[in-house]
Nucleic acid binder design. Structure first.
Length: 633
DNA sequence: TACAATTGTCATCAC
DNA sequence: TCGTGATGACAATTG
């Protein structure tokens, strides 16, 4: 796995270099830094737990999608892995691209005649051919900037998808019907191309791809060894070398292009315009029809290495590199999933998890797995929470749950529900933070756990499932309770009561249901309580540090004040001596400084006063002491 | 093997 | 009265 990750990372870097060589500039920084919105909800203080903040969305961010509240400085360490998973997740149809923006700039094969303006090479900055209506979609241009944002997320470097109107969103939704096989092999850029209308890149490959381009595509996907990647890229590069130089010659900053495009792509874009642009953006020279027939091939040069890499992922998994890690159970899981390459991709994640945990956390002790999310992409995000239609979440308001990494793996019996999960903004995820929240049960149909007595299962599958199921899950299954632990715990009390009444459960079943619900609730409560306690401890520690600092500061001020007063007293004493030495008494002799002193009056006058006799003072003090003693007695 | 941290669970109380 | 949250205490697990 480490080899695969390393190679993925290197592959991405090589791809970036290749893109830059052919004239396409991709600002990786935008993906790594500004790409993801800053987390604003990590630790809101001691009160955060009380409001049951959905911290679950920040979980499972070992990939660096977010910053762990405890280790914010580790974010950059996950940059590579983040990219890797960016690609990997794109291979899964249940993970929508959060927000991907990229720029492809092409100089028309017809040359400057298209724009007639040498400055047009800057791309969108040129307004020569723009219509008067600023909101109108940019007409035929030989440059193109694509900034696609996930409709659910709508945020990122593109300015929250400000220049995507509803029509485009509709178009994207329609185009999401792209075959899964394409998605499974698509990379970030590639998939965006697919979603973007398959017109994004003036694909240099299309100039060379024979009519039977799918064969070539399959060949690309059939690369069986990582070592072939380099040769593949080299071959492709040599193939493309001739036309790329002419086809793509502009180097436009992604950020610049996005900013420009934000203004150029007005909100009044119509589908007609988009369609027209699609056609115009298509390569005019050759194989223009190929992109229509082969959406997957129209993704451009960038798609090839990514596709290869993605394919290599599966090959790696199934063949040499990770072959030793794949046992039959894993392949059986793949078969159960029936998701083809996506399943392989999921298994990569799974293996990655297993690799780190060495198959040792397959069964949580109590394992309510309240955050397990049942195959939902990570945990339910706040977006799901906000858009929740289920009463479960309206009640829980982010009730929290914890689960281990393995817990987050969906139990096999409910894998079918993963398609129901809305996409999750992984950028809001934080790796393994110990804040807790409930998983979404939105639109989750009543889950009928297979009853052991009713459905005999294959041994291997059953064992795997039982390993991953919690004790309560197993109990519920054993007693043929048709609800998952998650449902039992998170459903509103009214619904829970209704379930108890309407299903004619036996007494044992009712007891188990109540126990499961109580344990689940208490588990969440305990987790919140602990988090609160930690927050309180942290707050108190900070308070102690603050008070200590204040104390130190006050002590320094006290010492400084005393020192200053000593200096002033010394100066006053010197001044008094000097003044008295100059003052004469009636006999013309200087005053004795031991017997006289200077007294400053309120009106600013300075008078000479004799110093009191010590004896008098002593006697007066004695008298005072005697009075005090008498009072005490 | 000892130990600390983590986590689940139970009991109890308060609302 | 019941459900639920909060919390202390205990035990099991894990590194």
């Amino acid at each position: 796995m480490q080899v695969a990750k390393k190679y993925f990372t290197e592959g991405l870097i090589q791809l970036t270099i290749l893109l830059s060589l052919v004239g396409v500039r991709v600002d990786i920084d935008s993906y790594l830094t500004g790409y993801y919105p800053p987390l604003t909800e990590i630790n809101l203080g001691p009160s955060s737990a009380y409001i049951q903040t959905p911290f679950h969305v920040l979980r499972d961010t070992l990939d660096g999608y977010g910053v762990h509240p405890k280790c914010p400085e580790l974010d950059y360490f996950f940059a590579s892995r983040r990219l890797l998973d960016e690609v990997r997740n794109l291979g899964s149809p249940r993970f929508h691209t959060q927000l991907n923006a990229w720029l492809v700039h092409q100089v028309s094969s017809t040359g400057p005649s298209t724009s007639g303006n040498p400055d047009a090479s800057v791309g969108l900055e040129s307004t020569e051919n723009e219509p008067a209506d600023a909101g109108e979609h940019r007409p035929v241009r030989d440059q193109e900037v694509h900034c696609q944002s996930n409709s659910e997320l709508g945020q990122g470097p593109c300015g929250a998808g400000a220049f995507l109107n509803e029509d485009e969103v509709k178009i994207k939704e329609e185009e999401e019907a792209v075959p899964l096989t394409h998605l499974a092999h698509s990379s970030t850029l590639e998939q965006e191309s697919l979603f973007e209308g398959i017109t994004t890149l003036p694909d240099p490959v299309l100039h060379h791809v024979p009519p039977a381009a799918d064969i070539d595509w399959n060949n690309l996907l059939s690369v069986a060894d990582l070592d072939d990647l380099d040769s593949l890229v080299t071959d492709r590069l040599s193939e493309l070398d001739s036309d790329i130089s002419s086809a793509i010659s502009q180097d436009v900053s992604l950020h610049d292009a996005m900013v420009t495009s934000a203004g150029a792509f007005g909100a009044t874009e119509s589908r007609t315009v988009s369609q027209r642009e699609r056609n115009l953006l298509r390569l005019e020279s050759t194989n223009s029809s190929l992109s229509d027939s082969l959406p997957g091939m129209a993704v451009g040069l960038a798609a090839l290495p990514f596709a290869s890499v993605c394919n290599l992922t599966g090959n790696l998994t199934s063949q040499s590199a990770l072959g030793s890690c794949l046992d039959e159970a894993v392949f059986e899981q793949i078969n159960q999933l029936g998701l083809g390459l996506e399943a392989i991709d999921n298994q990569l994640n799974y293996l990655e998890c297993l690799d780190s945990r060495a198959f040792e956390d397959l069964d949580s002790d109590s394992g309510l797995s309240l955050e397990s999310s049942y195959g939902c992409p990570v945990s339910p995000g706040s977006s799901e929470m906000s858009s929740a239609t289920s009463s479960y979440y309206e009640e829980e308001g982010g009730a929290t749950g914890y689960s281990s990494e393995v817990d987050s793996k969906p139990p096999k019996g409910i894998l079918d529900h993963r398609a129901m999960w809305p996409p999750v903004d992984l950028s809001e995820s934080v790796w393994h933070d110990h804040s807790y929240s409930s998983p979404p049960l939105l639109s989750m149909p009543p889950l009928r756990l297979p009853c052991k007595t009713e459905e005999p299962e294959e041994d291997g599958r059953s064992q795997l499932e039982e390993q991953e199921l919690s004790r309560d899950e197993l109990r519920a299954r054993a007693m043929c309770i048709p609800f998952s632990v998650l449902q039992i715990v998170n459903m509103p009390v009214e619904e829970f009561m209704e379930v108890l009444d309407s299903h004619s459960f036996s007494a044992d079943q009712v007891t188990l249901l109540r126990d499961i619900r109580r344990r689940g609730k208490n588990k969440l409560a305990a987790q919140n309580c602990r988090k609160r306690k930690l927050d309180a401890i942290t707050g108190l520690q900070e308070e102690v540090e603050r008070l200590q600092a204040q104390r130190d500061r006050l002590l320094r001020e006290k010492r400084l004040t005393a020192k200053t007063m000593g200096a002033v007293a010394h100066q006053f004493k010197q001044l008094t001596r000097d003044v008295l030495s100059r003052v004469r008494d009636a006999s013309g002799r200087p005053l004795n400084p031991e017997r006289f002193t200077l007294q400053c009056g309120a009106n600013g006058r300075v008078v000479v006063q004799p110093i009191r006799q010590p004896a008098v003072a002593t006697s007066a003090g004695k008298k005072t002491d005697k009075r005090k003693k008498e009072k005490k007695q």
